[in-house]
């Protein structure tokens, strides 16, 4: 390398750092530093009234964690969160896959149908949740006028369906999740389906493979990767999701997910320390699940290869 080349290279490095620095500064100030502070708050007795006296150093305690873990309702809300997340993720991906396959072949009006499929995902969550509330309202909701007996979908924690006890509100919230996020899976899967090489399927067709055989042995194996990615993304987003449940039920009727508890601790009880501890517990549980999943998945991947 000549001196001139080295100077050019150094200039490039400096220009790169300079251009990326606004991005780094804003992530640092609004994401990284607050995150570190959240961790500190979780170990302090911090309330909104005494926050100015809570110094950076000193008075670290585990009390917040023992408090939130021992609180009645914490473990059940963790289970609710898990059920909500797993069911919401699985359903949204399954419906998204069905939608992508159904719209694979061209037909008149496909553009319109495609546009309609995307609206639940694009529409603001507040409007979508309010719409569901109105449509499912036991007094004047249109869905209840179709039923023989009105059901309080969003405020009834259990009910009997065909003689089986079912968690009504939780199932409704899960249905909302599937409805709102299947377009996300639909978009990803449509893009992947679009890029599949046609000759593999043609070869299978010539070999006499039936439609389900072609799906099972030709199409699905090429989709696993994207389905795995979608599962991770949807799981991560749903596990810590606050808006949907808060807006639909406020966390009542057996739908209290952990993020709603975090919000309640923060705003109605003004207990910042406990709220931060609760949020950290949620984040740690999420990370544990992710690690288990990635281990399991990479293991399965190696086996297949």
């Amino acid at each position: 390398m000549t001196t001139r080349e080295r100077t050019l290279r150094r200039q490039e490095g400096r220009a790169g750092l300079l251009l990326i620095s606004p991005t780094l500064v804003i992530t640092l100030v609004v994401v990284v530093v607050p995150l570190l502070w959240a961790i500190m708050l979780a170990f302090q007795d911090a309330r909104l009234i005494n926050i100015r006296q809570t110094g950076l150093l000193g008075n670290y305690t585990l009390e917040n964690f023992t408090y939130v873990l021992a609180e009645p309702g914490f473990w059940s809300s963790l289970v609710t969160t898990l059920v909500y997340t797993v069911a919401g993720t699985a359903l949204s991906i399954a419906i998204g896959l069905a939608a992508a396959l159904a719209l694979r072949r061209r037909f008149a009006g496909r553009t319109l149908v495609r546009a309609a499929f995307l609206i639940p995902y694009v529409a603001p969550v507040v409007a979508a949740a309010f719409l569901w509330e109105v449509m499912l309202n036991p007094q004047y909701g249109i869905v209840n006028t179709w039923l023989g007996e009105p059901i309080a979908f969003l405020s009834q924690s259990t009910g009997t369906f065909l003689g089986v006890q079912v968690p009504v509100a939780l199932l409704t919230v899960i249905a909302f999740e599937a409805w709102r996020y299947f377009p996300f899976a639909f978009l990803f899967l449509t893009a992947r389906l679009h890029s599949l090489p046609a000759d593999l399927e043609e070869a299978a067709l010539i070999d006499g493979a039936t439609p389900t055989q072609r799906f099972r042995h030709v199409i699905l194996p090429q989709l696993w990767r994207i389905i795995a990615l979608l599962s991770v993304l949807r799981f991560v987003f749903t596990f810590t999701k606050f808006d949907d449940v808060y807006l639909l039920t406020g966390g009542g009727a057996g739908t209290e997910v952990v993020s709603v508890r975090v919000y309640d601790l923060l705003t109605s009880r003004n207990d910042i320390g406990a709220s931060a501890a609760q949020a950290l517990v949620l984040a740690v549980v999420l990370m544990v699940f992710l690690v288990i999943y990635l281990r399991f998945f990479s293991g399965a991947e190696e086996e297949r290869e």
Binding site: W37, A38, L48, I51, T240, S259, V262, S275, A276
Partner: peptide, 17 residues
């Protein structure tokens, strides 16, 4: 990927202060 609900707490405190 980071949960917004975790960031909400310190930002809420900071903005209040």
């Amino acid at each position: 990927l980071f949960p917004a609900i975790v960031l909400a707490i310190p930002l809420f405190v900071l903005f209040t202060m």
